[in-house]
Nucleic acid binder design. Structure first.
Length: 768
DNA sequence: CGTATATATCTTTTT
DNA sequence: GATATATACG
């Protein structure tokens, strides 16, 4: 805000204006440095040399980073554009920029601050030619990537059933995450994909990208590395420029990012990385926690600073989180303790078991309404789910109850069909070589250019080595095509040419409006009778008006592919609904974590893929979730859930058992998990201790609909599990089945109708 | 060439 | 249950 050191609006290259202290003398620390605790302050003031800050959840990591930038600038150790600060998400970058500006004023604008990807684009646009691209190259989104790879695999006649393009894309991305260009891939993981042709595919894909003048997400980093490695002179310029480099969420960096950092910091060696191994939740995307360990190896003189004082949560929440994460092995080991003087112990974490998903949503939103009545602001409440599909249930409930909410990271504005079409038009204007954009819109609206015509254009383009746009123009001169198709194609090419010529004189927003109108795209939706058509038209309007702030098309298109914000309902205050992954770095007074069930959380597929390693990562995710809460946390699980169209029975997540008993308050619907006797079977005990402590119950005769509670007759049972392999049993939802396996109170049952499922023994009864 | 109907696969997390 | 691709038909 108003700060004595605030600078004028002068451009970045203006040296810092002389302020209270004389230029040469070290500046006295301002209040915002003095307010820090000793460790934080050390992390801020150790500006020279490599520094590794191990920063637990809620220990003021962002504060340290922003203050450090402010301190460096205030001391005039570097000018704003000589500071490079890398974050992992756009949100973090934005927040950091705002906070630095509060400290030192508008000159913070010139700091190189952004995500790895955004910063790489900035470097690449300047040097595109050196890596075989033109500076107006397109950034492909994941949809384009898959489509392109599919085309290539089809051309190589690879069985798309056996080897889905998605899978190969994953392999390629992992290679890129490790900084491997096609020529550098050895026998590494996945090279046997598609009968060992994966590397060849990768190579073809990269070549195709180059002719399209396009780059995918991984390329942004990869091309930078290539640039730095092939052009030492360019590398040196950047090394020289960046006196100080800071990295947020360091535990989430992959190998390519690590190399990127190491190359850039070799000269000044003032690298400060902030991270927390317990919050590493992106290994599936190539992140290497090992980067933290390697840091001390590569920089033996690195100063390691631990931040362990938590300023966010109640002792109860801290204890629960610490207890849970202690189940992981191979941690660097930090002990979080409260840094808040005189804080109360705080309410226990409420853990609740319910009958099914609908009930869970009803209960959860009911709790939110109660909090609201008690005067808690809704924007201090969050619902954190493991995966996107879990959000629907809560959204519906929030809508019917009228509780305002917003979804973070849900379906994004720019991912909508009509917006992607509109973007494709603009992309083709900006970059005629963008064949993917061409194919997307060539027949939208219908111009009588179908499959066969497009194929012909495609073939000619490949044969002559030109873009499809260029090929279309050539074909409208010849008589290869039916006259109908030929005139349509010529017309489209002419329109495109005209729109392109507008770029010099007309602002982007106007071009977009004109293009969408003249192409007949708007008309297409106006004529459409489907219920979603009006909404799409609204979106298109919003799209055009959103373009207003942009002066050039290129900048806007970068924004679309890199930032992809969902600002649809960003402004409104309400409950926040998001995934655990996107919750990292945020905090709320109250946090709800539904769906703590085996197979959902921890996620089955993750476990299948990477076993124990994945389990630990899932546990870290749980840790991240709990530590988002300042004062209150709620955890819930349902006994039954509808997956696709089928009912599935589920058992509580093992993470529930891993919470410390003394910090939770257990609660379940009547009849569920034996709550009549207070607490459900074996809860809070280890799996071993629980063995044989199952509860059997019999169904009430008048049992009608599912979801009704209280219709159960419960009956505590003593002694060993009464079921044996081979027993015939009955389950209310799945019918009759045979027990095939027993693990504690969990039964593996082959049902006659519903197939094989894992079920808690308390949900089945013996049948003769 | 366009439209209508059937089908398979999807749901892990994101720049 | 929804969406994308495949197939058939007009």
């Amino acid at each position: 805000m108003s700060d004595p050191f605030e600078l004028s609006d002068d451009p970045p290259f203006e040296p810092l204006a002389p302020r209270p202290a004389a230029p040469a003398a070290p500046t006295a620390p301002p209040v915002w440095v003095e307010k820090l605790n000793p460790e934080q302050r050390q992390a801020v003031e150790t500006t020279e040399g490599p520094v590794l800050v191990l920063s637990g959840a809620g220990t003021g990591k962002t504060r340290v980073l922003t203050t450090r930038v402010g301190w460096i600038l205030l001391q005039r150790r570097a000018r704003p554009w000589q500071v490079l600060a890398v974050t992992f998400t756009n949100r973090a970058a934005r927040e950091m920029r705002e906070r630095v500006m509060q400290l030192i004023g508008p000159s913070a604008e010139a700091v190189w601050l952004g995500t790895f990807h955004a910063l790489s684009v900035r470097i690449l646009r300047r040097n595109a030619e050196l890596v075989g691209l033109k500076s107006n190259f397109t950034i492909l989104d994941s949809d384009d990537q898959i489509r392109l790879l599919k085309q290539i695999m089809e051309a190589e006649s690879i069985d798309s059933k056996k080897w889905p393009a998605q899978g190969l894309m994953g392999v390629i991305q992992r290679w890129k995450d490790r900084g491997l260009t096609p020529d550098k891939v050895g026998g590494e993981g996945g090279s046997d994909y598609a009968n060992g042709r994966a590397v060849a595919m990768y190579k073809a894909y990269q070549e195709r990208l180059k002719t399209l003048n396009a780059a995918d997400f991984g390329d942004l980093l990869l091309h930078c590395l290539t640039l730095f490695q092939t052009r030492p002179d360019i590398l040196e310029e950047y090394q020289e420029q960046f006196h100080y480099v800071l990295v947020d969420e360091y535990q989430d960096t992959n190998v390519a990012q690590y190399l990127w950092l190491r190359l850039l910091t070799q000269k000044h060696r003032n690298l400060c990385c902030v991270g927390d191994d317990d919050q590493s939740i992106y290994s599936w995307r190539g992140a290497e926690v090992g980067n933290i360990l390697r840091f001390e190896k590569d920089f033996p003189d690195a100063k390691v600073i631990r931040l362990e004082r938590n300023y966010r949560s109640t002792p109860t929440i801290l204890a629960a989180a610490s207890h849970l994460i202690a189940h992981n092995e191979g941690r660097l080991g930090k002990t979080l303790r409260t840094g808040l003087d005189g804080i109360e112990q705080g309410a226990p974490i409420k853990v609740r078991g319910v009958w099914d998903g609908a009930e869970e949503a009803r209960w959860l939103v009911g709790e939110i309404e109660a909090l609201q009545r008690a005067g808690h602001p809704l924007d201090q409440i969050a619902i954190l789910v493991r995966a996107g599909f879990q959000m629907l249930e809560f959204e519906e409930r929030l809508i019917t109850t009228g509780v305002p909410y917003r979804v973070v990271g849900g379906p994004r504005f720019y991912e909508r069909l009509e917006i992607r079409d509109a973007v494709a038009y603009l992309r083709l204007i900006q970059q005629p070589e963008d064949d993917l954009a061409f194919e997307r819109i060539i027949n939208k609206p219908k111009r009588g250019l179908g499959e066969t015509t497009i194929q012909k254009v495609h073939i000619l383009a490949r044969a002559q080595g030109v873009s499809m746009m260029e090929a279309s123009m050539r074909m409208s001169e010849t008589d290869e095509l039916r006259p109908q198709a030929r005139t349509a194609l010529a017309g489209f090419a002419r329109d495109m040419e005209r729109w392109r010529s507008l770029r010099e004189t007309v602002p982007p927003a106007e071009i977009a409006a004109q293009v969408l109108e003249e192409s007949g795209y708007i008309e297409m939706w106006q004529k459409d009778k489907s219920p979603e058509a009006p909404g799409r038209l609204d979106n298109l309007k919003e799209f055009v008006s959103g373009l207003d702030e942009w002066e050039n098309l290129g900048g806007f298109l970068d924004h679309v592919s890199l930032v992809m914000e969902n600002d649809a309902n960003a402004g409104e205050a309400g409950v926040t609904l998001m995934t655990l992954h996107s919750a990292k770095g945020l905090e709320f007074d109250t946090v709800f974590m539904p769906g703590w069930e085996e197979d959902i959380f921890p996620n089955r597929r993750a476990l299948d893929e990477s076993g124990e390693k994945a389990l630990e990562e899932e546990r870290r995710l749980a840790y991240v979730g709990i530590t988002r809460a300042r004062r209150r946390a709620f955890i819930s699980f349902a006994a039954n859930r509808r997956v696709y169209n089928q009912w599935q029975s589920s058992i509580p997540s093992r993470f529930v058992d891993e919470l410390p008993k003394e910090n939770i308050e257990q609660d379940a619907d009547q009849g569920l998990y034996g709550s009549r006797g207070g607490g459900w079977s074996g809860f809070g005990e280890s799996a071993a201790a629980r063995s044989g402590a199952g509860i059997s119950r019999r169904l009430g005769s008048d049992y009608g609909e599912f979801g009704k509670t209280g219709a159960w007759e419960t009956q505590e049972r003593v002694g060993a599990n009464e079921f044996r392999i081979g027993d015939r049993v009955f389950h209310q939802k799945f019918g009759y089945g045979i027990v095939e396996g027993i693990d504690d109170s969990k039964l593996d049952i082959a049902f006659e109708k519903a197939g094989r499922k894992k079920v808690l023994d308390s949900f089945v009864e013996p049948s003769k």
